[in-house]
Amino acid sequence: MKQRFNVMVAALWWGSLTGLGFVVVPMLFANLGTPAAAGAMAARLFTAQAWLSTGCAMLLLLVLNKKDDAALALQAQAAMKFVVAGLLLALLVEFGIAPRIVSARADGGNLKLWHGLGTALYVVQWLCAGLALWRLAPTSQAAQPPAAD
């Protein structure tokens, strides 16, 4: 049960990053009237995503820190570095990069630099969440429940 919970939380984290970054935000820019309107909405969505990422990562860290099952402890150890890295990246993008994007847009600063850096860090966070999910997923048929007839 604990293993399934870990996988579900990691899947929520990775799936939400995937949906927002690769589907929703591109559709905003394709369908809203102006890039400014799409950018403003995307900024709100990325803030919500940062909090969701933080919650999922913190929950995983709390659950993975328990060492009551040796097999799960090995999976947890393998995933932990990716969870921590993803958490730090989410916080860095939200509190370090996003404010610079907003100020660059308002002050005429280097928007391209900050947006590119934010995008790169988002992709690395996506990779960390995906690798955490990969590490937490069951690896053998023995770990899988029997198929229902």
Rank of each mutant, 00 (worst) to 15 (best):
V7L: 03
M8E: 00
L12K: 01
W14Q: 01
G15C: 01
L17S: 01
V23K: 00
V23R: 00
V24P: 01
P26A: 03
P26C: 04
M27S: 07
F29N: 06
L32P: 05
G33A: 13
T34V: 09
A40C: 01
A43W: 02
A43R: 15
A48M: 12
L52I: 12
L52D: 03
L52R: 05
S53G: 13
G55A: 12
L59A: 15
L62G: 15
V63Y: 08
N65T: 11
D68G: 14
A71D: 15
L72R: 13
A76C: 14
Q77C: 09
A79D: 07
F82V: 09
F82M: 13
V84M: 10
A85N: 08
G86M: 11
G86F: 11
L87Y: 12
L87F: 14
L87Q: 03
L91S: 07
V93L: 07
E94H: 14
G96W: 02
A98Q: 14
V102G: 05
S103D: 12
A106N: 11
G108D: 09
N110F: 05
L111A: 10
L113D: 06
G118V: 10
T119C: 07
A120F: 15
Y122W: 12
Q125S: 13
Q125P: 04
C128I: 08
G130Q: 06
A132Y: 05
W134F: 15
L136C: 04
A137L: 14
Q144D: 08
